[in-house]
Each structure stands twice: as structure tokens, then as C-alpha cells.
Amino acid sequence: MPPHTSAGRESITVDHLSPDLTRALYRHMRTARDLDTEAIALQRQGVFPAYVSVRGQEAAQVASASAMDPARDFVFPTYREMAAALAYGVEMVGYMATHRALWHGGLYDVAASRFGAVNAVVGGPVPHAVGWAVGERLRGDDGVALAYFGDGASSEGDVHEAMNFAGVFGAPVVFFCQNNQWALSVPNERQVAGGSVSARAAGYGFPGVLVDGNDAGAVYEATAEAVARARRGEGPTLVEALTYRVEPHSTSDDPGRYRDEAEVRRWRERDPLTLLRAALLAAGHADEAHLAEVDARARREAERVRDGVATAPEPDGSELFTHVFRENTKELARQRRTWQEEVEL
């Protein structure tokens, strides 16, 4: 694939992967697609104040998250990693709660999920992944951290600082850039000097890999290799998955002001789910009957999560004060009483 162009291959292959794995990738991607559709509908209905679609990025997210081990690794997301969360096994009603604005970081258990809190400062969590990974090595454990970030975040100082730290410490971390080619309204050519995020890894002394982000099999292989390297103690890898944000940046966005609809149409035709479905059938990993059944299950799961998040109770006002400190202060206790007397009523 020529780097950073929209001309991808028209088909992918998963012949080299196990049928169990490729079927699981398809199931998660299908579920994420349906849940994404439900989420956009919830926003239209006024249940979500806003939503950020992952449509078109399911292969990049599901295949990378599936290369991680939720029993010993740790994933650090930003705010557009719904499909990764789903594939990694995060409790999805709790995850989607962030989009209903029930709690900024979501309502899932970050520690038990080993999946960091939703975070809108897009470069911010990347050094967290490095710190976590350094901590893993200090203890002699073999967990690997993966940090998601985008082409926009690749401009953030924290991302560069984190990569330099990771290189210096030889930290077991995978920097996973989903290059969806648009940082809100700004395209790659006005975001990424030199034209390549993955090429920057060379400057930090570790491998950088560019992969077709709409090819689930290729993403899985590249990430699995990066994870294996890190686990062997060979340090970090930067994986850049080239994909495309086919939906607006968020439900509040108006992409007609900045990009050509023909470009979007071309990428919609390279849909990662369609590509994987065809590859599964071609590889003989699944037949139409099986896929129809998976589609139906995905539909039901997406509806379950939709109903769960739509009906989840709003947090009690007292929770304003609950988690500010582990050891509360007298002043905050006083302010909580003020809240009780003057707000709660």
C-alpha cells in the first residue's frame, strides 16, 4: 500500500490467521458497527448530548485490541476507542455512559478492565502508557501497554515526550496511531510534517510500522508482533494504521465545510467490515449462515447496550464530592453540606 493515500486494495485476506480469531474479529467489528449506529440514533433522539463515531475504524481498533491480553496488559484510550473497548472486553453499558455524559471517564471499572478512562486531552494518556509499562518492567512482570492516539494527537508534545521516554527506558509499550486522515477539519498534509507518523519511530530508536488500518488481518499481525516484541523485552513499537473517519468528527461537526464528499464515498466503499466479511468467506473461515447468525447476535448485543445506557440511572448529586480525594477534607465536607442544604433540597 502506498503510504498515506486513499487508494487501498480492493480485497484483503485472512488466510494466515486462525478461523476462531477471524470470526471473533468479525463479531466484534459487527457489534461495534451496530452499536455505533445505535449511538448516533441516541444522539439524534437527544439521549446523548453528542457522540463520536468509530465507523470505518473498526478494523484498526478491534484487531489491535484483540492482540492484547486483558489478563495482564493495559490499554490507554483517548475518546474514540469504542470498538477497541468492546473487543478488549470492557463492560459496554459503562463505557457508553461517557457519551450519555453520565460520568466523564465512563462508568466501567478502569482497574478491573485494564482499560484506561476515556480522555479528551488526546496526547495526555500516551505518557501514562509509558509509565505503566516502565512500572511493569520494574516489577519484573511481562505486561504490555498500548496507547491509542490519532494523527491529530501525533502533533502533541506529550506524544513525542512519551516516545522518547519509551525509547530511553526500553519500555514494553505499543504506540498505536489510528491515522484517520482528519484531525477534526485539518487533513494529514496540514497536520503531519514529513508525511508519516510511523517514520518518526526511527528518530526514537524503535521500529515504526505502517499498516492498512482497514485490513483487520494486517492490523492484527502488526500489533501482535509489536506486543510480542515488547513482551520479549525488546522495547516499544509504533504502529500507524492508515484508515479514514467516514463520519463527521462528532455529531456536532459539519464536514461539508472542509472536505470533499467524493473522498468520503471512496473510503466508505473500502469498508473494513465488508472487506473482512468477504475475506472470511474466501478463506472458508465462515459461511453465509454462520455470518447471518453472528450478525443477528451483534444486533441483539448492540440493542442490549443501547437499552442499558439509555435507561441507566443518572448519578446522584452527592457523587460530585465522592471521589475528589481518597481522604476527604473538612472543607469539601462543608461544601457537600452546602450542596445538601442549598441544591439538593
Binding site: F74, F76, V110, A111, G116, G124, V126, P127, H128, A129, V130, G131, W132, A133, V134, G135, E136, L138, R139, A145, G157, D158, E161, A162, N164, F165, V168
Partner: peptide
């Protein structure tokens, strides 16, 4: 391993502290 120098980047030092804390340190 307990007392170590970092490269010169204050934001990454504090970001690293966050990740270490999330890993039980």
C-alpha cells in the same frame, strides 16, 4: 530501579507518574 533519572521533559515525568501509579507504584 527505585531512584532513577529521566530525560528532560516535565510533562512526561508527571505523565509517567500517572502510569506508574496506575500500575500500583
Amino acid at each position: 530501579k527505585r531512584v532513577f533519572d529521566t530525560p528532560l521533559a516535565e510533562s512526561a515525568i508527571m505523565g509517567m507518574a500517572v502510569g506508574l501509579a496506575m500500575n500500583g507504584w
